[in-house]
Design a protein around this nucleic acid. Structure first.
Lengths: 333, 333
DNA sequence: TTGGGGAACTAGCGCGCGCAAGTCCCGCGA
DNA sequence: TCGCGGGACTTGCGCGCGCTAGTTCCCCAA
């Protein structure tokens, strides 16, 4: 089963020799090379012998001969991935597996001191869930990788409409709140997304006939939450839509410490439905996201870039829902 | 600078041809092959020409010829990594970079449906921060990787003494608590670590002259926290050492919902000092861990397995400290 | 003057595989 | 009977690199 008596690795040539046939035939069988006709008898003999000897193709040799590493590198942001995203990555991994590709996830180190993996791995495709940060696409190209997803050269319309903030506003509006603030994050890594969500929240407020939103960026580790709350309270704000659950938790904590009751005096809605949201006390109302089929979509995208496959037509479906918990309640009179 | 006019990739042979020297010489220069003497003039000509042509070694070819992929696979647990650990991984990545190896982090998918990366990447070394789960080491071996760290065949004394629970107990003891419970996690993925910490807590209690600890395993998503607290309270427990911050948060939340004041009536200490601990309200007292030099140590370990390098003598230094916050206070009278 | 030795190179094999181009033979239609 | 179309293979090159086993030349000691 496993390795033979010698500790040399088993090669396709070993199978051929042991069966008294040519190496090419073995290769054709193992790769199911299209356009080659192999008798069923030979086919099964090869397969059996391969299993018996414990044959395992040498990926470096294959990569050298075929000119492709069959590696797809997925660049991930450096914040913790939520469960939904992780499941989608597994889904992508599975789909690529079936096509003979390996998905490797990679979070570039913030300091940028170590060599990026796209240089050392020479993957066939480098993909990312968001646009590549400035300079990154160039770095990838310079390392010889030609297939980037999304390709900065041909910018597609943004895949997702950020509708979470709209749901936050609607939820608070339905509870009777009319003076609402938006709390962003001061973390520069997520500045773009914060700005996007803030804008969507602003639009939602306008279409609900509310006055322009007040807003502030919250730093999780300092007193900025307390300051923002003090500021907002003094101008009559009764509810806050937060950029994410961490910010929401920070706000609620600051409010409680300031003696402000949540949700009776102040409602707060988070975003992303992280584990934190359900563990916090009071449990945080938030927005749950579920991107059904994202993984399969990513895999199909990668395969279409690297083989003769069609670009997937239908993108993943984004499901959003308000999760009402204990941090939001009807507006005080 | 970058690729030449043709879009064929630049090879070492191109450099040789363009310089009118042999491929071998080029190889010797680029690899600084020991035992080869190359004139300084030739050396710099090769280096210059390589840069001019934008030469980039073909890793698959190199792997094929040398018989090693120069890949180190680091298997990570599937829970979010804290900042300290991430920094250590970067440190390891950097050290391996310098030695010409690439560090790839990998979190096996819980379902186990997709092919593990050690099969598809054929790394030189597979390492893990904890012992390999049952069956995993066998799977790695079966894929042809011979260098595992830690090697299950030669079990070393456990690298780290789990002293966090000792600090938790000491902290609570210092605050006057004499009836203390330990809260584990019902998550089977961390069962071993839970058990280890529970034992250490038990030993600490004994050496402090306390009665045996009561304990329960908490499920984050259900009512087990409330049940445990109710149980403990009725038998006079005034403080809880929790396996980690998530469990601590769960307990504090349940206590507050049950009308039990934290920390006045019940003290809770977490473990790991995750962001959650500082964001929670009340902010959680916890144990902060800092493993100085872990990254360099891991890198040295990997290199010693794969090259003629000495096994690092000194392991990383583990720094532990109690972070007293608002979830622990002097015992009620 | 000779020859030993080392500095500075070159020739070329082999790593394991994919695949293009050939070879052989058998069956079948004219 | 001949030819011809494929089915079922085989031969062998080339991918790019590491590295062993040379080869050449020159310097210096005997």
């Amino acid at each position: 089963m496993s390795q033979s008596t010698s500790n040399r690795r088993v090669t396709a040539a070993d199978i051929a020799r042991s069966l008294g046939i040519s190496r090419a035939t073995v290769g054709f069988v193992l790769n199911e090379t299209p356009g080659q006709t192999i008798s069923e008898a030979t086919r099964s003999r090869v397969l059996d012998e391969a299993k018996r000897l414990g044959y395992r193709p040498h990926i470096a040799a294959r990569a050298l001969a075929s000119g492709r590493t069959r590696i797809v590198l997925l660049v991930l942001p450096d914040w913790p991935l939520d469960f939904n995203l992780r499941r989608n990555i597994e889904e992508a991994s599975l789909a690529l597996d079936e096509a003979g590709y390996a998905l490797i996830t990679y979070t570039p180190h913030p300091t940028g001191l170590s060599r990026p993996l796209w240089e050392t791995l020479q993957p066939d495709v480098v993909m990312s869930m968001a646009a590549f940060a400035p300079g990154v696409a160039e770095s990838i190209r310079a390392s010889g990788v030609t297939r980037l997803i999304p390709d900065p050269e041909m910018p597609v319309a943004d895949e997702y409409s950020e509708d979470g903030p709209v749901l936050q506003l609607q939820h608070l509006f339905d509870l009777g709140h009319r003076s609402i603030a938006f709390a962003g994050s001061a973390d520069p890594r997520v500045a773009d997304l914060v700005e996007l969500r803030r804008q969507r929240a602003g639009e939602a407020a306008e279409s609900l006939g509310l006055p322009p939103l007040r807003f502030a960026d919250i730093e999780l580790t300092d007193a900025s939450a307390a300051a923002a709350i003090h500021d907002w309270r003094s101008s009559g704000v009764t509810a806050v839509a937060a950029y994410n659950d961490d910010v929401a938790a920070s706000l609620v904590g600051a409010a409680l410490r300031a003696g402000i009751s949540v949700p009776r005096e102040l409602s707060v809605v988070g975003h992303d439905d992280t584990p934190l949201a359900s563990m916090f006390e009071p449990r945080l109302s938030t927005i749950h996201m579920n991107t059904v089929g994202l993984g399969r979509y990513l895999a199909a995208l990668a395969l279409s870039a690297v083989e003769e496959r069609p670009v997937p037509s239908a993108g993943p479906e984004l499901q959003l829902a308000v999760v009402p918990r204990d941090s939001s309640a009807p507006a005080p009179l």
